[in-house]
């Protein structure tokens, strides 16, 4: 059986909120290392990969592999019933029909309990090879969100060009064009504002802003976001969570006609 207790319901609320517009039904794969999720969006150009390590829960118990097929709209409805600071416990039997969610207030004696019916989801799994990326950019997640939103006002696509000069986000559309360039930057007092660019070779790729703006819904999960790029491979957008847990998004690049 599965029993996984999260100190704060907020973590799961934010994760589900960040992915629910990309994927609708998905399996939460539970085993002794934690709870993982991998799902492609309908158009098969974006992939969500979440890993909540067992260390992110206290306690965490999962005796055997269990796939919880959950509709994220249903999960969102139930998670809305939890206060952000509630303690959240996920429970399921070994061959479950439902997943049980218990919300406990740390400050009062309230205990809420919900069951969500599970679905049989036959999901295609993509193998993601370990990739040595040509460019890795760490930057404030709020900054990345602003850039994506700003450029989306002008265009559907953004080109991300990384050279030793810095990283340039550029777009052009019907009303004109725009760009934002960032250089490496270290803020000793506020390291969350650092911009770090690790480059082994120059990269230039074009991506759909609609997806990037969608990924940025995860900004509340982490002060920093990591962008990993190599020519002609999908972009990796990673929000690191505590205990080596993560929320990753992959996006296939656009190509010329």
């Amino acid at each position: 059986m599965l029993e996984a207790r999260l100190e704060q319901a907020n973590l799961l609320k934010k994760v589900v909120d960040a992915i629910k517009d990309l994927v609708q039904d998905c399996n939460f794969d539970c085993n002794d290392s934690g709870i993982a999720l991998q799902a492609m969006d309908n158009s098969h150009v974006a992939l969500v990969s979440m890993m909540l390590k067992s260390e992110s829960f206290s306690p965490f118990r999962c005796d055997r592999n269990i796939a919880l097929g959950i509709n994220l709209t249903s999960l969102t409805k139930v998670l809305r019933c939890a206060a952000n600071e509630d303690i959240l416990t996920l429970k399921a039997e070994d061959a479950p029909d439902v997943v049980n969610l218990v919300f406990e207030s740390a400050e009062s004696d309230r205990l809420s309990e919900y069951d969500i019916k599970l679905m049989d989801i036959d999901q295609e799994h993509l193998g993601i090879p370990e990739t040595e990326y040509a460019a890795t950019i760490s930057m404030p997640s709020a900054e990345f969100q602003k850039i994506c939103r700003d450029l989306m006002a002008l265009s559907e696509s953004v080109s991300i060009e990384c050279t030793k000069e810095g990283v340039k986000f550029a777009c052009s559309g019907d009303i004109g064009s725009g760009s934002v360039t960032l250089r490496s930057h270290t803020n000793v007092e506020k390291p969350q504002l650092n911009v770090e660019i690790d480059l082994s070779e120059p990269v230039a790729l074009t991506f759909s802003l609609k997806y990037l703006v969608n990924f940025c819904k995860a900004s509340g999960l982490s002060e920093q976001v990591r962008l990993c790029l190599s020519n002609e491979v999908p972009l990796l957008v990673e929000y690191a969570l505590s205990n080596n847990s993560y929320l990753r998004f992959y996006l296939a690049p656009k190509i010329g006609d």
Partner: peptide, 14 residues
Amino acid sequence: YSQQLALELYFYLS
């Protein structure tokens, strides 16, 4: 730039 390639072209179905 118009065509968005599918992820399956990059990752393998397992």
